[in-house]
Design a protein around this nucleic acid. Structure first.
Length: 480
DNA sequence: GTAGGGTTAG
């Protein structure tokens, strides 16, 4: 087979992959007597684009074994595969290969390396790789911004967004999705509105992912009306399904279960086929709106009518549904017979229901399950201690606290914040550092008096014992 | 002919 023919086969493979016909591409690949690096790269990339990451990595090993040296194309794809599998060990090996072959600083290889580290939760290494690159482009900036927000550093992501603009890069749809998510994480409505305006100016309002993140941002910032407006003004987005899923969740977040269900019914009428995320939004809405039976009905419908295999997240929603409704035994039985392995969040969902319904015996048992999965989970110890406090079992409360000290488990103090006229004001429990602290406190007392006059009874049992050693320390250390 | 970043739920 002459080299000229290899090239025409490669064109054929490329075309199949572009059309999503991976099977046909692999058929051609198998038939080829001679291949070059581009042949291997095309198939490896095709596999990774369809999320066959493990298969792609095996083919990469085979490529290497056949004497073909990986180039920047290969490494970029393979690193993306490692990121998809969250395989830090393989990812680090590929990074090592990139360094030895002098491709580490290549724009694509560098971004892919950083993305791999950040997907595996190693934010600092990802930041280091991006910052050591001599040249940047919009993709390198996006990699860093997305990595920051996905690793819980939304403030850092927004800082990086302003740095990127100062450096002269034009944000694109992917930048917008990441920074809008950052705003919803931080509930900084003003900043979110400003970015919304930038999205309009940049002409990115037809991108479903962007609209979706705007709906979610407005909803989480407390502006359901704006979320509804963005949803209503959506043009002919190519991917309507994501928008419906976001909007259902937004209604659920605001306690509007009826509206969430109505939207789902509208999807069925319009023959827009719900997917696993739609059902997640729907189950979430039912559990947050006290619609237990409806929720169970939807779970059943998802499996039987739509043929969607339940994911652990769906099951956790069902646990929440049962738990909030007070069906604790049913919830525990559900977890123990679920089709997928429960994770720490599943158990924590039940634990929080134990606190609401003051079931201390079950709480003890559930905490043991959580600590099997995550022994350093401070929130579970605190939740257990609060459950005991609600039931006025003070001896058990101090036992839990003692265990935490013995196991060196530290609880991060809670923090809350809000944005006012482009300024973020934040408060730690017992914090007196805010310049208007006294005024705020006296207004809070007024509000509390008004609440009580309207019949509100605070849950003192839990509140008094919510303050633990670390939080007290911070309260005392805070400058006046 | 082959390369990198994002989405909704929790």
């Amino acid at each position: 087979m002459p080299e000229r023919n290899v090239m025409s086969y490669n064109i054929l493979i490329g075309g199949y992959i572009q059309n999503g016909e991976l099977g046909a591409a692999i058929e051609v690949f198998k038939e080829m007597g001679r291949r070059n690096s581009a042949t291997w790269n095309a198939v490896i990339t095709g596999l990774i684009k369809s999320e066959f990451n493990g298969e792609a990595l095996r083919l990469f090993t085979k490529m290497h074994g056949n004497g073909f040296l990986p180039d920047a194309y290969t490494l970029g794809s393979v690193l993306r595969g490692c990121a998809g599998l969250r395989d830090l060990i393989k990812g680090t090996q590929v990074h090592g290969y990139a360094i030895r072959s002098g491709l580490e600083m290549d724009l694509v290889v560098g971004s892919s390396t950083a993305h791999m580290y950040m997907r595996c939760g190693i934010l600092s290494e990802g930041q280091r790789v991006i910052q050591s690159m001599p040249v940047h482009n919009v993709v390198a900036c996006n990699t860093l911004i997305a990595g920051l927000v996905q690793n819980g550093c939304a403030t850092g992501a927004l800082d990086q967004y302003y740095i990127m603009k100062i450096a002269g890069f034009q944000p694109d749809k992917i930048t917008f999705v990441s920074v809008i998510s950052s705003c919803s994480e931080l509930s900084t409505l003003g900043q979110g509105q400003q970015i919304h305006a930038e999205v309009i100016k940049a002409g990115a309002m037809s991108v479903a992912a962007v609209i979706s993140s705007l709906i979610s941002m407005y909803s989480r910032c407390g502006c359901l009306d704006d979320a509804v407006r963005v949803f209503g003004e959506r043009g002919r987005a190519e991917d309507d399904l994501v928008l419906f899923s976001s909007m259902i969740a937004a209604y659920g977040f605001h306690g509007k279960g009826e509206e969430a269900i109505e939207l789902f019914n509208r999807m069925e009428r319009d023959r827009l086929e719900a997917n696993e995320v739609t059902f997640l939004s729907l189950l979430y809405s039912c559990s947050h709106c006290g619609l237990k039976d409806k929720g169970l009905e939807f779970f059943d419908m998802m499996v039987k009518k739509y043929g969607i295999e339940p994911h652990v997240k769906h099951c956790t929603c069902v646990v929440d549904l049962l738990g909030r409704a007070g069906c604790l035994d049913e919830a525990e039985a559900f977890i123990r017979s679920m089709p997928v392995e429960p994770d720490a969040i599943t158990w924590k969902t039940l634990l929080s229901a134990c606190k609401i319904h003051k079931n201390t015996d079950m709480a003890k048992r559930i905490v043991e399950e959580i600590l099997k999965i995550d022994p350093q989970d401070s929130a579970s110890y605190v939740l257990l201690s609060n459950t005991q406090a609600c039931a006025e079992r003070w001896q058990d409360v101090s036992d839990v606290r003692r265990k935490m000290r013995e196991r060196m488990v530290k609880k991060e103090p809670g923090i809350s914040w809000f944005e006012l006229r482009n300024q973020v004001h934040h408060f730690i429990m017992g914090d007196k550092s805010h310049p208007n602290s006294e005024d705020i406190d006296s207004y809070l007392q007024e509000l509390m008096a008004e609440l009580k006059s309207l019949g509100y009874a605070p849950d003192i049992g839990a509140v008094l014992h919510d303050m633990d050693v670390e939080e007290k320390g911070i309260q005392l250390d805070t400058p006046q």
